[in-house]
Amino acid sequence: MPMLDIQHLTKSFGGVQALNDLDFHVDKGEIVSVIGPNGAGKTSFFNTVTGYFSPDEGQILFNGVNISGHEPHEITELGIARTFQNVRLFPDMTVLENVMVAQHCRTTTGIFGTLLNTRSFRREEAQIEANAKDVLSFFGKRLQGYRWDQPASVLSYANRRRLEIARAMATEPELILLDEPTAGMNPKETAELTDLIRQLRDDRGYTVVLIEHEMRVVRDVSDRVVVLDHGEKIAEGDFETVSHNPDVIEAYLGRPAEHTDE
């Protein structure tokens, strides 16, 4: 059974067909890239899977459970985490707090535990902090030490992207959806992050779906590539196959006058 199994997913806004009868699956332990030209419906796809949009038709099975129509926070709790295309951190909260917040759905202490300062509350707070620091250590020294206490708003762009991934990891998901994780990064940072994405699976055991524009990253990390255009899947396979698929080239470049393999 695939971990994420999407069947006939359809979503339209007014007259615009964002997703059209999309079938898609991800197996446990895979890294799948979703590519496609701008407006192909990639982010709509993420938003639908994570519950921000409810689909018009079709279903989303996560570990065999239909999750379509659930609220985003329930989906996070079920084990799907995501990042946002235009980095969205909590700017006034510190780096550490940003990650600690993400442990919300894995913890239970309510108001009364907090007020009575129960032992389980203190243990849980300590655990939250330890988990947060552990997750941040994934990025080496980038988000360590004094950075813990800095507000997220002073971080550099690349560090913000890293923090967003850390936050997604802290929700303890099985599946992580990364929306253009390397956008705005320089080549060195991109290369570093490419390694990290692989480590997400190899060391931490997450299954990863990413939307990416940078073809080098796609080539380096993906087990499988899915190409979307106008909300439809136009190709699927490993990077080599897909990159030579005439439909894909056409979607990216428009219909060429005469077509040659590159």
Binding site: T50, Y52, E71, P72, H73, T76, E77, A81, R82, F84, R88, L89, F90, P91, D92, M93, E97, M100, V101, A102, Q103, H104, C105, R106, T107, T109, G110, I111, T114, L115, N117, F121, E124, E125, I128, R167, T171
Partner: peptide, 26 residues
Amino acid sequence: RLQKSRTGRAWTALREDEDVAEAMGI
């Protein structure tokens, strides 16, 4: 007590960005 607890952090997150707070499982 509430300000520096799980509940308080969730409130701050909500105030700063509701959509993302939701994605954090709040």
